[in-house]
Computed example of a mutant assay.
Amino acid sequence: MHLSYCTNVHPAEDLDGIIGQFDTYATAIRRHLDADVLGLGLWLAAPVAAELAADPAARRRLRRELDARGLEVVTLNGFPYEAFQAPVVKHAVYHPDWTDRRRLDYTLDLARVLVDLLPETAARGSVSTLPLAWREPWDADRSSAAGRLLDELARGLALLERPIRVGFEPEPGCVVENTTQAAALLSDVDTSRLGVCLDLAHLACAWEDPAEALARLRAAGLPVVKVQVSAALETADPVGADSVLRTYVEPRFLHQTRSAAGPAADDLDEALDRRIPGPWRVHYHVPLHAEPVAPLTSTVPVLRAALRELIRQDACDHFDVETYTWGVLPEEIRPRTDADVAAGIAAELAFARAELLTEVTP
Rank of each mutant, 00 (worst) to 15 (best):
H91T: 14
A50L: 09
D55Y: 05
R246V: 13
V175F: 03
L40D: 00
D100M: 12
W43V: 12
R353F: 01
E171Y: 11
P335C: 04
G41N: 12
R258M: 06
F168W: 06
V300F: 02
L118A: 01
R162Q: 07
A346F: 06
H10E: 00
L52D: 10
P172V: 08
H2C: 02
Q313I: 06
L160E: 10
E270A: 13
P277Y: 03
T337H: 11
P362Q: 08
A158N: 03
A294S: 14
D340A: 05
R353Y: 01
G70M: 12
A50E: 03
V176P: 02
A347S: 14
A92K: 14
L186D: 09
T180W: 05
R135Q: 01
P163K: 06
R216P: 03
E359C: 06
G20L: 07
L38F: 04
G147Y: 04
T337L: 02
L356S: 05
L217H: 10
L38H: 07
V360I: 00
T323S: 00
G195K: 07
Q85G: 05
A53L: 15
L110V: 04
L130E: 04
T107Y: 13
V196D: 11
G39Q: 08
S298R: 08
I29A: 05
H202K: 02
L52T: 06
D105N: 09
L233E: 12
C197I: 04
P210V: 15
G78L: 07
A261H: 03
R258W: 05
P210E: 14
V74R: 15
P362T: 06
G278F: 01
A158T: 05
T121W: 13
D97W: 14
P277F: 01
P210N: 14
V224C: 08
P287C: 08
R59T: 08
V300I: 13
Y324M: 04
A231L: 09
I333T: 04
P11G: 07
H95P: 00
R112E: 03
L71Y: 08
M1V: 15
A35S: 15
V127H: 07
L233R: 11
D340I: 03
T27Y: 02
L118G: 04
L52M: 05
L200M: 05
T325K: 09
N77C: 10
S4K: 12
V73N: 11
R64F: 10
S143K: 03
D105R: 13
T323V: 13
Y324K: 02
R304L: 02
L42C: 09
L52K: 08
I345T: 05
T247S: 15
D14C: 10
A305D: 07
E250F: 06
L76D: 10
L44S: 05
P223T: 11
A264V: 15
A46C: 07
A86P: 08
L329I: 08
Y25F: 14
I19L: 11
L71Q: 11
E212T: 15
L198V: 06
L130N: 12
S126K: 07
P287A: 13
P287Y: 11
D16T: 14
E250M: 09
V113C: 00
A290H: 07
P119T: 11
R135F: 03
